[in-house]
Amino acid sequence: MTIKVVRGNPTPEELAAALAVVRARAAAAADMPSGAPGPRDSWSDPARIAARPVPRPGPSAWARTYWPA
Results as ranks from 00 to 15, higher is better:
residue 60 S to G: 09
residue 9 N to V: 01
residue 5 V to R: 03
residue 60 S to I: 05
residue 27 A to K: 03
residue 24 A to F: 06
residue 48 R to K: 08
residue 52 R to I: 15
residue 21 V to T: 10
residue 3 I to G: 00
residue 22 V to K: 07
residue 55 P to K: 02
residue 21 V to S: 00
residue 23 R to D: 15
residue 19 L to M: 14
residue 49 I to P: 00
residue 35 G to F: 05
residue 32 M to W: 05
residue 19 L to H: 10
residue 48 R to I: 05
residue 64 R to W: 11
residue 45 D to H: 04
residue 50 A to I: 07
residue 15 L to D: 10
residue 58 G to H: 06
residue 23 R to E: 14
residue 63 A to H: 07
residue 6 V to K: 07
residue 3 I to E: 12
residue 33 P to S: 07
residue 62 W to C: 07
residue 66 Y to P: 06
residue 39 P to D: 07
residue 47 A to V: 08
residue 45 D to W: 03
residue 17 A to Q: 10
residue 36 A to Y: 05
residue 67 W to N: 14
residue 36 A to L: 12
residue 60 S to P: 00
residue 42 S to D: 07
residue 21 V to A: 03
residue 15 L to K: 07
residue 5 V to S: 03
residue 10 P to L: 05
residue 31 D to N: 12
residue 37 P to I: 00
residue 17 A to S: 15
residue 60 S to C: 04
residue 2 T to H: 08
residue 16 A to L: 14
residue 58 G to E: 01
residue 23 R to F: 06
residue 19 L to A: 07
residue 68 P to R: 11
residue 33 P to M: 06
residue 53 P to L: 06
residue 47 A to G: 11
residue 5 V to A: 03
residue 27 A to T: 13
residue 56 R to W: 04
residue 2 T to K: 15
residue 61 A to H: 13
residue 41 D to H: 15
residue 50 A to Y: 08
residue 2 T to C: 08
residue 53 P to Y: 07
residue 59 P to D: 11
residue 34 S to Y: 15
residue 4 K to G: 00
residue 52 R to L: 08
residue 26 A to M: 13
residue 7 R to E: 12
residue 8 G to V: 01
residue 66 Y to A: 14
residue 57 P to L: 05
residue 53 P to V: 08
residue 37 P to F: 01
residue 13 E to T: 07
residue 52 R to Y: 10
residue 14 E to L: 12
residue 57 P to N: 03
residue 41 D to Q: 08
residue 23 R to C: 02
residue 55 P to A: 05
residue 34 S to P: 10
residue 12 P to C: 03
residue 35 G to C: 01
residue 3 I to C: 10
residue 5 V to H: 05
residue 23 R to N: 14
residue 16 A to R: 15
residue 10 P to Q: 07
residue 40 R to Q: 14
residue 10 P to T: 11
residue 62 W to F: 15
residue 7 R to V: 04
residue 5 V to E: 01
residue 39 P to G: 11
residue 40 R to G: 12
residue 12 P to Y: 00
residue 46 P to I: 01
residue 44 S to P: 04
residue 36 A to V: 13
residue 54 V to K: 02
residue 46 P to Y: 02
residue 37 P to S: 08
residue 66 Y to S: 06
residue 43 W to S: 11
residue 31 D to V: 05
residue 21 V to I: 15
residue 35 G to I: 02
residue 42 S to P: 13
residue 50 A to D: 13
residue 2 T to W: 03
residue 4 K to P: 00
residue 13 E to N: 11
residue 59 P to E: 11
residue 42 S to Q: 04
residue 69 A to R: 12
